[in-house]
Design a protein around this nucleic acid. Structure first.
Length: 425
RNA sequence: GGAGAGGUGGCAGAGUGGUCGAAUGCACCGGUUUCGAAAACCGGCAGGGAUGAAAGUUCCUCGGGAGUUCGAAUCUCCCCCUCUCCGCCA
């Protein structure tokens, strides 16, 4: 959510930002509604003041005078009720409009409509060449008994999967490596709830817009698609000390996504699944654009270093306006090389929000002058499983169909090669 | 799932219809005192909105919402949350 004062004073900027994000919003209408809101508020304030004065005086008067005062208060109350009723209606529209105003994308965000218009900013690593016909991860992992997709769908339905055998060893190894990598960098690890109340989804900006992407329980909670939601909720309605900042969490949770509207995409394998698990970098910092930008680059760098540890070739793209979420100011996607698709696929998504989320969540801190400020927030993937496994096995596959274990993972996996023994069925 | 208790400022904790946005204590900030500190003493100390150059004036907020009343932290109803006991349980 943006500050209404800011919107009023920077109408063109806000409207232009929405255009760049390809999000429709009527700022003129919002301002008109806000004018109404202000007028009604002022009217009510004055009437309430009069009522307060009368209520205070009423104790000291009696008889006919009191009767007269009560009579005039009745008229006043009727007027107030009328104004209140109008205000409720106005506020309803006001809230709806306010929640739909997107955050303004950074100047450096390229124009564009969809992920096809994202712009590559750098590449790292050598794209592997194979002296044999490389297999895709579904075939590799099935052959090696690392995953079972048939039984996965039998049990869990569309996009269901089992990880098994060396697939589980590899997943846990990657997970542990990620945890160590980020703890070393000063992140505080957190295991976060996936079952989260509506309020926090509103605060992070996933609701009310993306209701159809979320699973909902019969008790009204939602299953979150990222630990970002619960982790941002951690300091909801709290005031932090400035010397706590920046707060850096690396937060783990199971993640659930309905993938509504993606039915035809990535229907096989581990790229797009309904249920996965992920470590997420979540950061709160002081309300400074410079600091946000610095940390945004840092979080991106952290993820790149992780891919470098795994020696997975990747590139970084800056997302275009049309590919940005409501609250995001700027976003980088990191995409690792996927031999079977002869292209890069997303492994990390790094974005910053300024105070868009914290304003909705009321996460503040006291600055050096003692003034309350909304913190800035950022997040980026640390590592998402099982998706990363698909890149690992495809890039590290050997001619005999086995998988070489990336050197850095050997201590965590306990062997140098996957699938040599105990393969498959 | 059953029974009970409770949600008040950074914290503790008073307040059961009338200048209560709220006693008191602690914490915190400023000052006096001191070589310095502690103690003591004095003063300040919730958030948000409107208006204003400012001082100020004013409105809202005692978990959230609705109601009763001229007037609600205080009474009524609904919801949320926390705690205790019982049941169930990884």
């Amino acid at each position: 959510m943006l500050d209404i004062h800011f919107i009023r004073e920077n109408k063109e900027l806000v409207q232009e930002g929405a255009r760049k994000k390809h999000i429709e919003v009527d700022i003129d209408r919002l301002i008109a509604v806000d004018d109404e809101r202000k007028a009604l508020r002022t009217e009510l304030d004055e009437k309430r003041a009069e009522q307060n004065r009368a209520s205070f005086n009423i104790v000291n008067i009696q008889g006919e005078e009191k009767e007269k005062l009560l009579e005039s208060l009745k008229t006043l109350k009727d007027g107030m009720a009328e104004a209140e009723e109008k205000l409720v209606k106005v506020m309803e529209e006001w809230q709806k409009l306010m929640l739909s105003v997107p955050n303004i994308p950074d100047m450096t965000v390229p124009e564009g409509d969809s992920d096809a218009d994202n712009v590559e900013v750098r590449t790292w690593g050598d794209i592997p060449t194979f002296s044999f016909a490389p297999k895709d991860h579904v075939e590799l992992m099935t052959n090696l008994g690392m995953a079972d997709f048939e039984r996965g769908t039998k049990v869990a339905g569309f996009r269901g999967y089992f990880l098994k055998g060396d697939g589980v060893l590899l997943a846990n190894a990657v997970s542990q490596l990620a945890l160590m990598h980020f703890v070393k960098k000063g992140f505080e690890p957190l295991i976060a709830p996936s079952l989260v109340r509506r309020e926090t989804f509103m605060g992070t900006g996933y609701l009310p817009q993306s209701e159809e992407d979320l699973y909902k329980t019969q008790d009204g909670e939602y299953l979150s698609g990222t630990a970002e939601v619960a982790t941002m909720g951690y300091y909801m309605n709290e005031t932090l000390d400035m010397n706590q900042l920046p707060v850096k969490f690396v937060s783990y949770s199971p993640c659930f996504r309905r993938e509504a509207g993606s039915h035809s995409k990535d229907t096989k394998g581990l790229i797009r699944v309904h249920e996965f698990f992920k470590w997420e970098q979540v950061v709160l910092c002081e309300a400074s654009h410079t600091e946000s930008v610095r940390l945004h680059e840092e979080l991106t760098q952290n993820a790149e270093e992780f891919l470098q540890l795994l020696n997975l070739p990747y590139h970084v793209v800056v997302n275009c306006g049309g590919d940005l979420g409501l609250g995001q100011v700027k976003k980088y996607d990191i995409e690792a090389w996927m031999p079977s698709q002869n292209t890069y696929r997303e492994t990390h998504s790094s974005s910053y929000f300024h105070d868009f989320q914290t304003r909705r969540l009321t996460t503040r801190y006291r600055d050096s002058e003692g003034k309350l400020q909304f913190a800035h927030s950022l997040n980026n993937t640390a590592v998402a499983m099982p998706r990363i496994l698909s890149m690992l096995v495809e890039n590290y596959q050997q001619e005999d169909g086995t998988i070489r274990v990336p050197e850095v993972l050997v201590p965590y996996v306990g062997k140098t090669s996957l699938g040599k023994s105990g393969q498959g069925e």
